Amino acid sequence: MAREPLSVVITTFNNADTIGACLASVAFADDIVVLDSGSADATRDIAEQAGARVYVQAFAGYSAQKQMAINLAVNRWVLLLDSDETLPPDAAALVRGALDAPSAAGYEMLRREWVFWRWQPGRARLNHYVRLFDRERARMSGHEVHESVVVDGPVRRLDAIIDHHGERDIEGRVDKANRYSSLQVRDRHTREPRALRLRMVAYPTIAFVRFYVLRGHWRGGWAGFIAARVHAFYAFLKYAKLYERRVSRRHGEGRAVEAERHQD
């Protein structure tokens, strides 16, 4: 039986420093789609030179943008990558092997993170995401942030690691925490939890312990410690901004009632 043809799908925006390595790592694919959000750098030129089919679409949100890119794929099987990710040769071989005779509707893959100045330690727990899937049985979740692939059918784990060359300095990671916490508060899927003030006080410590101790990032030295602190700050920001929204709504309702009284 012939191997299922593969489309690789990537969304970009001003990623000239990473898109070349990303595309080179998936050069074996039968089809490569790059959906750009209007880059001002050389991202699109690099992608076109690498043989990708390049399209431009104004940014519609992380989930919606990725879904539009998936819809542009010509093949049924899709590998979804971020523009700052690369697929090592051993992972590429596993992807090709899975497509020889797919036994699931989607496959989870592990992701190894670059943390400031080093890779996360080998024995730290890796996150896993569905990245290889049959697009006729899958869709993006619709979340504004932390979007994921939702698969209608069985999902299996592919023992392949994606390398994520993410934020290379503390400033970038803190900026991302601030941006993502705001998006999560605005996400229509985010429900306001109970005991917001208690969560705002307690959860950052819980998040730190989970990330640093339970997930093994203490093995990463000071890079792991700093990353855990930023992760805790992200948890604080998320609940603080939810609380701010609640208080603002109450004040807004109070002002509206007061205005009605003056009108009477």
Rank of each mutant, 00 (worst) to 15 (best):
H231P: 00
P121E: 11
I161A: 07
R173M: 10
H189E: 14
L94G: 01
T12Q: 04
L214P: 00
Y107R: 06
R44P: 00
A64V: 07
V78I: 08
A92D: 08
D152A: 14
H189G: 00
G172V: 12
A202W: 14
A138K: 01
V95N: 04
F208N: 09
V9L: 10
S141Y: 10
Y62N: 08
A93W: 04
E4G: 05
V149L: 08
Y180C: 07
A98D: 00
A256V: 09
S148Y: 12
T18Q: 03
S141F: 12
A207M: 09
R157P: 00
Y180V: 11
L198D: 01
L198G: 08
F208S: 05
Y212N: 05
Y107W: 15
L198N: 06
T86N: 01
N75A: 09
V56W: 00
A52C: 07
E253T: 09
R157G: 01
F59D: 10
A24Y: 08
V56K: 00
Q67W: 11
E147A: 15
S37V: 01
S37P: 01
V209I: 15
P5S: 03
V149F: 13
D264W: 11
V9Q: 11
E244D: 13
M200T: 15
V74A: 12
Q49Y: 02
T18K: 14
H262R: 15
G61C: 12
D152W: 03
D134M: 08
M200N: 03
S103Y: 03
M140Y: 03
L242W: 02
P88M: 07
P204A: 10
Y107E: 00
G20S: 12
G106K: 05
A227P: 04
A223D: 10
Y239H: 10
R186H: 06
D169E: 07
L158C: 05
D100R: 14
G216R: 15
I162F: 14
A240C: 06
V151K: 02
H262W: 12
A64W: 04
R249P: 00
A232T: 09
D134F: 06
K176Y: 01
L72F: 15
F59M: 04
G216M: 11
P89R: 13
A105Y: 02
P154L: 13
I19P: 00
R125C: 02
T11E: 04
E147H: 13
L158E: 05
Q65L: 06
G51S: 08
Q67H: 11
A27V: 05
V201L: 15
E136C: 10
W218H: 14
R173N: 10
I162T: 12
M68I: 08
V209N: 03
Y212F: 15
V78A: 03
M200L: 14
R255P: 00
E144M: 12
F233G: 03
